[in-house]
Each structure stands twice: as C-alpha cells, then as structure tokens.
Write a protein that binds this DNA or RNA. Structure first.
Length: 102
DNA sequence: GGCCCTTTGAAGTCG
DNA sequence: CGACTTCAAAGGGCC
C-alpha cells in the first residue's frame, strides 16, 4: 500500500488550482503520446512539441478545446463560485524582477 | 523535494 | 482599460 500522504479528500479547499486553458487539456491528451512516440523525457520539451502540434490543428479542432476549457472554468466557478484564481500568485519564482538591475 | 525549463490561455496584479 | 506578471501542467534535470 502506497502512502497516500497527500491523497486525502479535500475536506475544505486547501488551494484551488487555476482553471486550465485549452492547452492544458490538449497537453494532457497529447503529452503522454508524444512523450512515448518522440521519446521525450522532460515535460518542457514535450510541451513545446505539443505546442507545435497545436499550430497544426484546424480552428474547429482548437475550438473544441476552447469549449472544453470554457466548460472547466464554468465547472470550477460552480464548485467554487467565490474563489478567486489567485491561489498561488507570487509563490513560485520566475520573477523577472530578479537581481538583473543590480 | 521544489524550482527550472517549456507551451498557450486565462486571469491574476499593477498602472 | 491597457499592459505586464504569474499559474496552470509537468518530468527530467539540478541542487
């Protein structure tokens, strides 16, 4: 039995992730396949490859994912109507402000 | 064990 | 209301 340390039911909302956009959905569709086909290891490389695939999609195919993304946002707002998506804003790095000016 | 790197979109904060 | 900044995913790679 694996230690389900963090797999507990969300009794309250510890932190609600931002509603994913069309790419996050498309990514989850293609990423495991692309990683297998292309032999991609790191997600960064796969995400970039899937990004190129995205550009090859027909507007109808892209539109499908926009509807999916919109549906997720709708579902999200229904589950947490008063939740602002700023769950972790400013927590991670990638701050362009870094010591560059120093 | 968490951030980086990466992608686009959304949506956050700032002005 | 425009412009900029950060998180969302996510997995090796790094420390």
């Amino acid at each position: 039995m694996i230690r389900r340390q963090h797999e507990y039911e969300p009794a309250s909302q510890p932190h609600i992730k931002k509603p994913r956009n069309a790419f996050m959905i498309f990514l989850n569709e293609q990423r495991p396949k692309v990683s297998a086909e292309k032999g991609m290891k790191s997600s960064a490389a796969v995400n970039a490859a899937v990004g190129q695939m995205w550009n090859s999609l027909s507007k109808e195919e892209q539109a499908k994912y926009y509807e999916e993304a919109e549906a997720e946002r709708r579902l999200h707002v229904q589950l947490y109507p008063e939740w602002s998506s700023a769950d972790n804003y400013g927590k991670k790095r990638k701050r362009t402000e870094s010591t560059d000016s120093m």
